[in-house]
């Protein structure tokens, strides 16, 4: 079965992950509060990768209900609200809390422990994208979480997305 991934929030981090996963063996369900964003991203993906299996969704709960793996890529400020909306359909599923690492703002790292509290029955993995400063170096992604099986699945996913996974200790602890 081709895994279905819901990406909720299509800012820089969400779009980057979607773009990197397009054309691989995943079905992507794209959602953004601004619906035109999901539609536009889908069209861009279709133009670059013909084999892409991506759909713009109207409802984030339906997207997460259908998906096997969820990516929460909304701003840190909105994560609590969105987590509460999708909690019921996220039970037992792997949820990636996605953010872009920036030195100026470490607030994401402080909040990372909270997302697991908002989604107590999901397997949460925090992922921080760290684009390489030198274009010749591969991009990497830091990840942390307490569920080993989920960490392994997410590491594999990041590798497929051409992001070198680097496991770090739980920064929220």
């Amino acid at each position: 079965m081709k895994p279905t991934i819901a990406i909720i929030g299509l800012g820089n981090a969400g779009s980057l992950l979607a773009t990197r996963l397009a054309g691989h063996s995943y079905r992507l369900l794209l959602f953004d509060q601004d619906r035109s964003k999901a539609q536009a991203l889908r069209e861009t993906l279709l133009q670059t990768v013909h084999s892409v299996d991506a759909e713009a969704m109207d409802c984030k709960v339906t997207a997460c209900w259908e998906a096997d793996l969820l990516v929460l890529a909304v701003s840190e400020a909105r994560k609590k609200v969105v987590a509460e909306q999708i909690r019921q359909v996220a039970t037992c599923k792997i949820v990636i809390s996605l953010a872009t690492l920036s030195r100026a703002d470490q607030s994401g790292a402080h909040l990372s422990g909270a997302v697991q509290q908002w989604l107590p029955d999901s397997k949460l993995v925090n992922v921080w994208l760290a684009p390489a400063e030198d274009a010749h170096l591969p991009d990497s992604a830091f990840l942390s979480g307490t569920h080993e099986g989920a960490l392994a699945v997410v590491s594999e996913l990041l590798t497929v997305a051409a992001l070198t996974p680097i496991e770090v200790e739980d920064w929220s602890a």
Partner: peptide, 9 residues
């Protein structure tokens, strides 16, 4: 309930 994955197909 916390042990079942809800899945819409």
């Amino acid at each position: 309930k916390t042990l079942f994955i809800p899945k819409k197909l």
